[in-house]
């Protein structure tokens, strides 16, 4: 569904990505782990079209999107959940939800979103800035699902959330996967990662250095946590 080949990116003189490659299959949840500064957020930004890669190729559903503008990528089914959740504080919950134009036939009707997320239905007229962290994260995910995203790019959706909210996020991601949605998930919480993901990539100094399955992650948890500096 998503193929990333040798993507490099720089901020001025600093190299953030140095030829990162990975793939995400249809209906697959894949996490990207790595310590701070490894290039995880930059990779998602390159995939979304918000940062121009210096080299490499990005293919979405068989189509090369490397040079495509961000808004066109969104319309092809890329759904972005940025690390700060990307909630518009000045827009109501419903405006936040309905802002992205519907990209594909798999889009959720608003009624279904509200059925799946009763909290959002109850707060639909609230400004997005007044939601709790967990509610904002739910809104961020609901927003891209409503738009019909086929591949979600989620940047640390569980960061700073209470355990209840983390469980809810897990359920949402598993539910999306059941509907054939692919997810590339930046995640530092390895326990959580193994409950939602099929595979994992370890990113270090801008490169994918290892591909791991759930068993690897569980067996080498201590070693990985030490590497991540957690």
């Amino acid at each position: 569904m998503l193929e990333v080949e040798g993507v490099s990116a720089r901020y001025g003189e600093a190299t953030a990505l140095d030829g990162a490659s990975l793939t995400v299959g249809e209906g697959e949840v894949v996490t990207l782990v790595g310590r701070n500064g490894a290039g995880k957020t930059t990779l998602l930004r390159c995939l979304m079209g918000l940062h121009r890669p210096a080299a490499g190729r990005i293919v979405l559903a068989g189509r090369d999107i490397t040079g495509l503008a961000a808004h066109r990528r969104a319309r092809l089914g890329l759904g972005y959940v940025p690390d700060d959740r990307g909630i518009y504080a000045g827009l109501s919950v419903e405006e936040n939800l309905t802002l992205p134009p519907v990209a594909a036939g798999s889009a959720w009707p608003l009624a279904r979103v509200y059925e799946a997320f009763p909290v959002l239905a109850a707060r639909r007229r609230f400004p997005g800035g007044r939601l709790s962290g967990g509610e904002q994260q739910m809104l961020a995910l609901a927003r891209v699902l409503r738009a019909g995203a086929r591949v979600l790019l989620c940047d640390e959706p569980t960061e700073g959330l209470a355990p209840v909210a983390v469980r809810q996020i897990g359920e949402i991601l598993r539910g999306a996967k059941e509907h054939g949605v692919s997810v590339l998930l930046v995640e530092q919480n390895l326990r959580f990662a193994t409950t939602v993901a099929d595979r994992h990539y370890l990113l270090a100094q801008g490169r994918v250095v290892e591909a791991l399955d759930n068993r690897d992650v569980k067996q080498r948890e201590d070693e990985l946590l030490a590497h991540l500096g957690l």
């Binding site: 979304m48 918000l50 990528r73 969104a74 972005y80 940025p82 518009y88 992205p100 134009p101 738009a147």
Partner: peptide, 21 residues
């Protein structure tokens, strides 16, 4: 109006949501 307010608050993000600001 919603699009203008969204673009005002977060121009880059609004592009990532499929809107040609």
């Amino acid at each position: 109006g919603t699009v203008v307010r969204a673009s005002t608050e977060r121009p880059e993000l609004t592009r990532a949501f499929g809107i040609d600001t």
